[in-house]
Amino acid sequence: MAKKILVIDDEPDMVTFLTTLLEDNGYETVVATDGDEGLSQLKAHKPDLVSLDLLMPNKTGIKMFRELRRDPDLADTPVVMVTGFGTDDTPNMDFKKWIHERSIKPPEAYIEKPVDKDALLTAIKKIIG
């Protein structure tokens, strides 16, 4: 049975690209365009992995990620962060906060936009096979 991946991104183009890429590689996809929708889809579909955009309207990826990690049912879901901000752009932003907040497990992988599709697929394969 194909593994299910939840793609959360407010950019429709990004959603189309990621779902096409993942489906072409044998994954089943579910879509959400902001944090709130992401959480509800997460609860509804129990995906094997979440591809999460950082910057989104209403509920940002960071906020949603924290809620996910704090929710005992969802906390173990592997998360791949996909964002336009590179590590160079935000050297002291959220990564540091994640490191300081020991109770929260950091995302399993981190992919920068524009997405290198091989890197993304390799990371996903490494996490969920």
Binding site: T20, G84, V115
Partner: peptide, 18 residues
């Protein structure tokens, strides 16, 4: 702007892939 361009690039890349 660089973020915007990245997004546009991502969109282009995505479009090309699709």
């Amino acid at each position: 702007m660089s973020h915007t361009i990245k997004n546009i690039l991502s969109g282009l890349q995505g479009g090309v892939y699709v």
